[in-house]
């Protein structure tokens, strides 16, 4: 159950078959909820945002290319963006507007990439790779990933020069790519 299943699932979403939404939820609902909950840390809010995420996928499925697109990664990107958008608006940090998310979650970007996001072996590899980062590298990835901080916000929060923060982000992503890229084609 992976590439081919997702391709067919995407086609059914495009045909607006309600059962496709059920299958999409059964496949990705738990992971989507977990990703959002890790960011917003409130189960009620997480439920609302999961609902919004699936509605967005449903509404935008027409722009998706089933043969080439990676359905799981696209859905997860939308999920994370909804969660970050939420915590930023709650904290009144709205300098980056939702337009930016719209660009970064456009289905056309989610083609020709690793599609498998549900593999437990991958989960282990990812956790191991994160554990290998230095404390500073891990910190900036977590602040970006779970709190949606920009690099200058991180610099302020951590009391470090912006250039240092940028270096940590870049080197952390580089190391993650080296470790994770061997197992998944990221």
């Amino acid at each position: 159950m992976s590439g081919q299943y997702d391709e067919e699932l995407a086609r059914r979403l495009q045909r607006r078959e309600p059962q496709a939404m059920a299958d999409l939820y059964d496949r990705f609902g738990r992971l989507t909820y977990s990703v959002i909950l890790a960011i917003v840390r409130d189960s009620g809010v997480a439920e609302d945002l999961v609902q919004e995420t699936f509605l967005r996928v449903w509404n935008r499925a027409q722009a998706f290319e089933p043969g080439k697109g990676a359905l799981g990664p696209w859905l997860l990107a939308i999920a994370r963006n909804r969660a970050i958008d939420y915590i930023r608006s709650v904290q009144s940090r709205m300098d980056r507007n939702s337009y930016e998310f719209d660009v970064r979650e456009h289905p056309s970007l989610f083609v020709d990439m690793e599609r498998e996001v549900l593999n437990t072996d991958h989960a282990r590899v990812i956790r191991a790779a994160l554990a290998k980062l230095t404390d500073n590298q891990r910190k900036v990835i977590e602040l970006a990933y779970y709190e949606g901080l920009s690099q200058s916000e991180m610099a302020e929060r951590l009391g470090q020069p912006l250039g240092t923060v940028k270096t940590w982000v870049r080197s952390a992503l580089q190391l993650l790519r080296e470790d994770i890229g061997q197992v998944v084609s990221a």
């Binding site: 977990s34 990676a70 997860l76 990439m113 996001v117 990812i126 990835i141």
Partner: peptide, 24 residues
Amino acid sequence: RKALSLVTVLSGGVELKDPPKRLR
């Protein structure tokens, strides 16, 4: 795309929690 792919794959490392049944 490659960078987005890496970032999205990171989501797969999140600790899984069961959503409430009503969410479906």
